[in-house]
């Protein structure tokens, strides 16, 4: 029995600089674009990956090139599973205020995590707050 083409794993360790983040993002998206995700799914996966990788590089490792960001992406017939880890001190996602609170609508930052949660099926952080795991279920019948 041949292996399902949707079953694959990509693991990358990148320095904390934006160009490296962009390259791993594009590598993953190029792979997803060969599969039968809907355009809205692809848009959402791109957005969630973008936000998570930028958070790890900028807020986690604070652009310290001596620290790495680890990206693991495991794809299966049912879903895609993505883990992004940084070497920073982490944060508590519960401390991030609700950006849709009317009093905070005009605050320029703090929307990335909300977007990740909206577009992915599951988004969870570890206790330290420096590892995020995101999952996206494949469309029914794909």
């Amino acid at each position: 029995m041949s292996k399902d083409s949707r079953t694959w794993t990509i693991e990358r360790a990148i320095p904390s600089e934006r160009g490296a983040g962009r390259r791993v993002l594009e590598e993953l998206l190029n792979r997803f674009e060969t599969e039968n995700w809907t355009p809205r799914d692809l848009f959402g996966i791109r957005l969630a990956l973008e936000e998570a990788i930028v958070n790890a590089i900028m807020h986690g490792n604070r652009l310290d090139r001596s620290k790495q960001v680890h990206v693991v992406c495991k794809s299966s017939a049912e879903k895609v599973w993505i883990k992004i880890s940084d070497e920073g001190s982490g944060f508590n996602p519960a401390d991030v205020p609700d950006c849709t609170d009317p009093d905070r609508l005009a605050v320029p930052s703090g929307r990335g995590i909300m977007l990740m949660r909206n577009y992915m099926t599951r988004v969870e952080y570890n206790l330290a707050g420096n590892v995020v795991v995101m999952e996206k279920s494949r469309p029914a019948g794909s």
């Binding site: 791109r46 957005l47 973008e50 936000e51 930028v54 005009a106 320029p108 930052s109 929307r111 990335g112």
Partner: peptide, 15 residues
Amino acid sequence: FLSSAALGKLITLDK
């Protein structure tokens, strides 16, 4: 496509 960082710039521009 745009990310949350771009949204932040638009909010600052609006102000």
